[in-house]
Amino acid sequence: MPSIHGSEVKQVIIACDAGMGSSVMVASTMRAKLAKYGVEVIHSPVDEIPVEASVVLCHAGLAARAQSTAPNAVVMPFQVFMGDPAFVKLEKAISDGETLES
Protein backbone atom coordinates (compact mmCIF):
# COMPACT_ATOMS: atom_id res chain seq x y z
CA MET A 1 0.00 0.00 0.00
CA PRO A 2 1.69 3.23 -1.08
CA SER A 3 1.52 5.97 1.53
CA ILE A 4 2.98 9.42 1.95
CA HIS A 5 3.15 11.99 4.72
CA GLY A 6 1.41 15.26 3.96
CA SER A 7 4.59 17.26 4.56
CA GLU A 8 6.44 15.28 1.86
CA VAL A 9 3.92 16.07 -0.86
CA LYS A 10 5.67 18.33 -3.37
CA GLN A 11 3.62 17.52 -6.46
CA VAL A 12 0.07 16.35 -7.12
CA ILE A 13 -1.01 14.83 -10.43
CA ILE A 14 -4.62 15.21 -11.57
CA ALA A 15 -5.43 12.53 -14.14
CA CYS A 16 -8.31 11.97 -16.55
CA ASP A 17 -8.80 9.81 -19.64
CA ALA A 18 -7.41 12.24 -22.22
CA GLY A 19 -5.59 14.62 -19.88
CA MET A 20 -7.19 17.52 -21.72
CA GLY A 21 -10.60 18.18 -20.21
CA SER A 22 -11.76 17.46 -16.69
CA SER A 23 -8.25 16.97 -15.26
CA VAL A 24 -7.21 20.42 -16.45
CA MET A 25 -10.29 21.90 -14.80
CA VAL A 26 -9.69 20.12 -11.48
CA ALA A 27 -5.97 20.97 -11.67
CA SER A 28 -6.65 24.68 -11.96
CA THR A 29 -8.88 24.69 -8.86
CA MET A 30 -6.45 22.52 -6.87
CA ARG A 31 -3.51 24.65 -7.95
CA ALA A 32 -5.16 27.69 -6.43
CA LYS A 33 -5.74 25.80 -3.17
CA LEU A 34 -2.31 24.18 -2.86
CA ALA A 35 -0.07 27.00 -4.11
CA LYS A 36 0.33 28.41 -0.59
CA TYR A 37 1.93 25.13 0.56
CA GLY A 38 4.43 25.18 -2.30
CA VAL A 39 2.84 22.10 -3.88
CA GLU A 40 2.95 21.87 -7.67
CA VAL A 41 -0.22 20.62 -9.40
CA ILE A 42 -0.04 19.17 -12.89
CA HIS A 43 -2.52 17.28 -15.11
CA SER A 44 -1.94 14.16 -17.17
CA PRO A 45 -3.69 11.43 -19.18
CA VAL A 46 -4.30 8.52 -16.80
CA ASP A 47 -2.14 6.13 -18.85
CA GLU A 48 0.79 8.57 -18.93
CA ILE A 49 1.14 9.43 -15.25
CA PRO A 50 4.90 9.86 -14.64
CA VAL A 51 6.42 6.86 -12.80
CA GLU A 52 7.87 9.12 -10.14
CA ALA A 53 4.41 10.47 -9.25
CA SER A 54 3.70 10.40 -5.52
CA VAL A 55 0.10 11.60 -5.25
CA VAL A 56 -2.56 11.16 -7.95
CA LEU A 57 -6.13 12.46 -7.86
CA CYS A 58 -8.55 11.00 -10.39
CA HIS A 59 -12.19 10.01 -10.74
CA ALA A 60 -13.09 6.72 -9.05
CA GLY A 61 -13.95 5.22 -12.45
CA LEU A 62 -10.33 5.64 -13.55
CA ALA A 63 -8.60 4.78 -10.26
CA ALA A 64 -7.65 1.21 -11.28
CA ARG A 65 -5.87 2.45 -14.39
CA ALA A 66 -4.13 5.21 -12.44
CA GLN A 67 -2.82 2.77 -9.84
CA SER A 68 -1.52 0.36 -12.47
CA THR A 69 0.25 3.17 -14.34
CA ALA A 70 1.80 4.53 -11.15
CA PRO A 71 2.01 1.58 -8.72
CA ASN A 72 4.04 3.55 -6.17
CA ALA A 73 1.77 6.57 -6.06
CA VAL A 74 -0.97 7.25 -3.56
CA VAL A 75 -4.10 7.28 -5.72
CA MET A 76 -6.96 9.29 -4.25
CA PRO A 77 -10.22 8.67 -6.13
CA PHE A 78 -12.98 11.28 -6.14
CA GLN A 79 -16.64 11.00 -7.11
CA VAL A 80 -17.65 14.55 -8.05
CA PHE A 81 -15.60 17.15 -9.85
CA MET A 82 -16.44 20.00 -7.54
CA GLY A 83 -16.38 19.96 -3.73
CA ASP A 84 -15.46 16.29 -3.34
CA PRO A 85 -14.28 15.26 0.15
CA ALA A 86 -11.09 13.87 -1.43
CA PHE A 87 -9.99 17.41 -2.35
CA VAL A 88 -10.56 18.59 1.23
CA LYS A 89 -8.76 15.56 2.61
CA LEU A 90 -5.70 16.16 0.47
CA GLU A 91 -5.45 19.82 1.40
CA LYS A 92 -5.91 19.00 5.06
CA ALA A 93 -3.24 16.30 4.94
CA ILE A 94 -0.79 18.74 3.42
CA SER A 95 -1.57 21.60 5.81
CA ASP A 96 -1.78 19.48 8.99
CA GLY A 97 0.82 16.86 8.08
CA GLU A 98 -1.38 13.75 7.99
CA THR A 99 -0.51 10.51 6.25
CA LEU A 100 -2.23 9.61 2.96
CA GLU A 101 -2.74 6.07 1.69
CA SER A 102 -3.96 4.55 -1.55
Partner: peptide
Protein backbone atom coordinates in the same frame (compact mmCIF):
# COMPACT_ATOMS: atom_id res chain seq x y z
CA UNK B 1 -11.65 0.22 -3.03
CA UNK B 2 -10.21 -3.23 -3.65
CA UNK B 3 -13.62 -4.49 -4.61
CA UNK B 4 -14.06 -1.58 -6.97
CA UNK B 5 -10.69 -2.26 -8.56
CA UNK B 6 -11.62 -5.86 -9.29
CA UNK B 7 -14.93 -4.77 -10.69
CA UNK B 8 -13.30 -2.31 -13.04
CA UNK B 9 -10.74 -4.83 -14.33
CA UNK B 10 -12.53 -5.45 -17.61
CA UNK B 11 -13.78 -1.88 -17.66
CA UNK B 12 -10.21 -0.61 -17.35
CA UNK B 13 -9.13 -2.81 -20.28
CA UNK B 14 -11.94 -1.50 -22.46
CA UNK B 15 -11.08 2.04 -21.40
CA UNK B 16 -7.44 1.41 -22.37
CA UNK B 17 -8.28 0.20 -25.87
CA UNK B 18 -10.59 3.17 -26.30
CA UNK B 19 -7.92 5.48 -24.97
CA UNK B 20 -5.47 4.13 -27.54
CA UNK B 21 -7.87 4.99 -30.39
CA UNK B 22 -8.97 8.36 -29.05
CA UNK B 23 -5.39 9.17 -28.04
CA UNK B 24 -4.46 9.38 -31.72
CA UNK B 25 -7.21 11.92 -32.42
CA UNK B 26 -7.49 14.09 -29.33
Amino acid sequence: VNKNREDTGIGAQVQRVGRFLSGMIM
